[in-house]
């Protein structure tokens, strides 16, 4: 459904994405986009949404290039990394604004109940705590039943109860056949929910596969240690059919995972 070909993006001299090739077509699956800070996760997601304009390469959504298009975004639910809203608007009004932009058919009531937002509906957004704002953010993101869900750091500021609700919600959405793309630094969340991992490092895809495959290739039982293994011993970017990265000097790379076929 989403095809990314040879995606390059730089900000000034900083080359953030350096030839990403990725195809996402599994319905009912959660793909975790992982990588250290500055590895290009958010830039990749923003390119998908048309918020960042690539220097080179193409992104196709359902077979059509997304450049300068906006209608395709009706098929995507997005949760931005930072939850900041107009301070003087009320929660109810921000929900209504989104409804007026995207249409009235939403499941806002269900999400308001799930995240316990009813007492805050008539409060100005500026007066809410960080965690409550994140709950509003999640409500706005999941309000539409779009087939693709993109979540950028969804757990930021959430209390344990809300985190459990979020996990349940993600599992339900996955079961309903949605394609979910999530970036996070919470490895337990990835281990619990992700069907597949895309690991970005310095603008390349360094690994793509399941958690079991990663553990196997890193020869580690523990998922977090396997991830740390990639970071401390950088691997050659994988060369699966749809993913071709540059070829670093092999002598400097002691750890070279086998190519995957996803």
């Amino acid at each position: 459904m989403i095809t990314i070909q040879n995606l390059h993006k730089s900000f000034g001299r900083n080359q953030v994405l350096q030839g990403i090739d990725l195809t996402l077509q599994r319905q009912g699956a959660i793909t975790a986009v992982l990588g250290p800070n500055g590895s290009g996760k958010t830039t990749l997601i923003k390119c998908l949404l048309g918020m960042v304009i690539p220097n080179e390469g193409q992104i196709c959504f359902a077979g059509k290039p997304v450049a300068k298009q906006w209608e395709y975004r009706a098929q995507i639910d997005y949760l931005p990394q930072i939850a900041r809203f107009p301070e003087n608007l009320r929660v109810r009004e921000i929900i209504r604004l989104l409804q007026q932009i995207r249409g009235p058919h939403t499941r806002d009531q269900e999400l308001i109940a799930l995240f316990g937002l009813s007492p805050y509906l008539d409060k100005p957004l500026g007066s809410l705590s960080g965690g409550t704002k994140q709950k509003v953010n999640l409500t706005l993101a999941f309000m539409y039943d779009s087939p693709i869900v993109i979540l950028d750091e969804p757990t930021a500021g959430l209390d344990p109860v809300a985190l459990i609700h979020l996990k349940d919600l993600l599992a339900r959405e996955k079961a309903r056949g949605k394609m979910i793309l999530v970036t996070t630094h919470i490895m337990s969340l990835v281990e619990e929910l992700a069907d597949e991992i895309v690991f970005l490092l310095e603008g390349h895809i360094y690994f793509r596969g399941t958690i079991a495959e990663l553990k196997e290739q890193c020869n580690e039982e523990d998922f977090e240690r396997a991830i740390a293994g990639i970071l401390t011993r950088p691997a050659q970017p994988i060369a699966a059919p749809e993913q071709v990265g540059p070829k670093p000097d092999k002598a400097s790379l002691p750890f070279i995972p086998q190519p995957t076929t996803h």
Binding site: L49, G50, M51, W70, A83, R84, F85, P86, I101
Partner: peptide, 17 residues
């Protein structure tokens, strides 16, 4: 500048920039 993050949310919606 104050509405920068909210603008990002709007940019992800099906509306013209």
């Amino acid at each position: 500048y104050n509405s920068r993050e909210f603008t990002e949310l709007l940019l992800a919606q099906p509306v013209k920039r």
